[in-house]
Amino acid sequence: MSYQILVIEDDQDIQEVIKEFLTVQNHIVHVASDGLEGIQQFNRLDFDLVILDIMMPNMDGYQVAQFIRSKSNLPIIMLTALEEEQDQVKGFELGIDDYITKPFSFHIFMKRVEAVLRRSYSKDKKNVLKFQELELDCDAYKTYVSASEVVLTTKEFDIVQSLLENKGKLVTRESLMDKLWGYDYYGDTRIIDTHIKNIRKKLNVPYIKTVKGVGYKIDQ
Rank of each mutant, 00 (worst) to 15 (best):
F106G: 00
L152Q: 01
Q15S: 13
T194A: 13
A140Y: 14
I196P: 00
Y121F: 11
E85R: 13
L74H: 05
R118D: 10
G38T: 03
F109N: 04
Q4C: 10
E83H: 14
D124A: 10
F67H: 11
R118Y: 14
Q66M: 10
L52P: 00
L134E: 12
E83G: 13
S122H: 03
V151I: 06
Y99H: 02
G187Q: 12
L164I: 00
I108M: 09
V24M: 07
K217Q: 09
Y121V: 03
L180M: 14
I191K: 04
F104D: 05
M59N: 08
R173M: 15
Y121A: 06
G168A: 07
L49M: 05
H107W: 09
D34K: 03
L79Y: 15
I77H: 01
Q66I: 05
S162M: 13
N73V: 06
Q4A: 09
E85L: 14
Y185I: 02
V151R: 03
S72F: 12
L49I: 00
E93K: 07
Y3D: 06
N58K: 09
K19N: 11
Q12E: 10
K19V: 07
L134C: 00
M177N: 08
I39P: 04
G38C: 05
L49D: 02
E133M: 08
S162P: 02
D158F: 11
N43M: 15
T194L: 08
Y3F: 05
G215H: 14
V113C: 02
I5Y: 01
D178F: 15
I8H: 02
W181M: 12
D13E: 12
S105C: 08
I54H: 07
A115M: 14
F106D: 05
L152N: 04
V171L: 09
D60H: 09
D137G: 00
D87W: 13
I100L: 11
N58S: 09
S148N: 12
V214S: 15
P57K: 13
T210M: 11
G213S: 11
Y99P: 06
S175Y: 15
A65Y: 11
I218L: 13
Y186I: 08
V171A: 11
G215N: 13
R44W: 09
V116H: 04
V64K: 02
I18E: 05
Q86V: 06
F104N: 04
V160W: 10
G38F: 05
D97A: 06
I100G: 04
A81G: 11
E83D: 15
Y216F: 14
D158C: 08
Q88C: 14
